[in-house]
């Protein structure tokens, strides 16, 4: 930073403006070209990741439809990766029958916000799959919530009928179908998962129930 430059040899400001204009023009061209060239592949990548996650959570899903949920709980079909608000992803088998709906959720954990997607089956009124999509929990402890087999088995058939809110209980004390058995040593992260599920099921399942016929038709 040359703040002590003598004022005497200051070139005319028209020269400075011309220079900045030329440089900005080059830079602008470069940025806009890259932006346009990468737009399609970026969107494509995002779509692939989304649909892979949905397929993983709803095994056997051959067709997917993404819905955006507006503030009053109404659905509209959206391009999954582009829509910024809350979303639902419905998965259908080869004959067009609804397998389940994938819901997104976020909740603050031990270190930062944990984000996850989970599958809800309207027939079973239960959560049938769970995947952490974003976490920065302590490696070796809190990050087990995304990999620990025993913990993930909580979400093979977790009661989401909303008669009892989903809660996390102390490791090894799960008795009821709506309880999540915590990982010992990662209690705070496990509890965050419980809160995440409780909150998003309370918000989204009524929306799904209300629009179930529409979701089953897939339009």
């Amino acid at each position: 930073m040359n703040t002590t430059a003598p004022r005497a040899d200051m070139p005319p400001s028209s020269a400075l403006i011309k220079l900045m204009g030329v440089v900005s023009l080059i830079c602008g061209l470069l940025i806009v070209t890259t932006h346009q060239q990468t737009l399609a592949p970026i969107r494509h990548n995002q779509e692939i990741i989304l649909s892979e996650t949905v397929a993983e959570l709803l095994p056997g899903a051959k067709k997917q439809v993404s819905y955006g949920v507006d503030a009053s709980g109404n659905l509209s079909i959206v391009e999954g990766a582009e829509f910024a608000g809350p979303r639902l992803f419905a998965g259908y088998d080869a004959y067009g029958g609804l397998i389940g709906v994938v819901i997104e959720g976020g909740e603050r954990g031990y270190a930062d916000v944990i984000r996850a997607m989970f599958a809800y089956s309207p027939q079973k009124k239960a959560i049938v799959g769970f995947k952490v999509t974003e976490l920065k929990e302590t490696p070796g402890l809190g990050d087990k919530i995304s990999s620990d087999k025993k913990f993930l088995s909580n979400f093979k058939d977790l009661d989401a009928s909303l008669e009892h809110p989903i809660v996390t209980v102390k490791s090894g004390t799960k008795k009821n179908r709506w309880e999540v058995d915590a990982i010992s040593g990662a209690t705070i992260s496990s509890r965050a998962v419980g809160r995440l599920l409780q909150k998003s099921t309370k918000e989204m399942i009524p929306v799904i129930q209300r629009n179930l016929q529409r979701i089953e038709r897939g339009n």
Partner: peptide
Amino acid sequence: FMGFAGMGG
């Protein structure tokens, strides 16, 4: 500072 993690949770 890691000891602060979990605060406010």
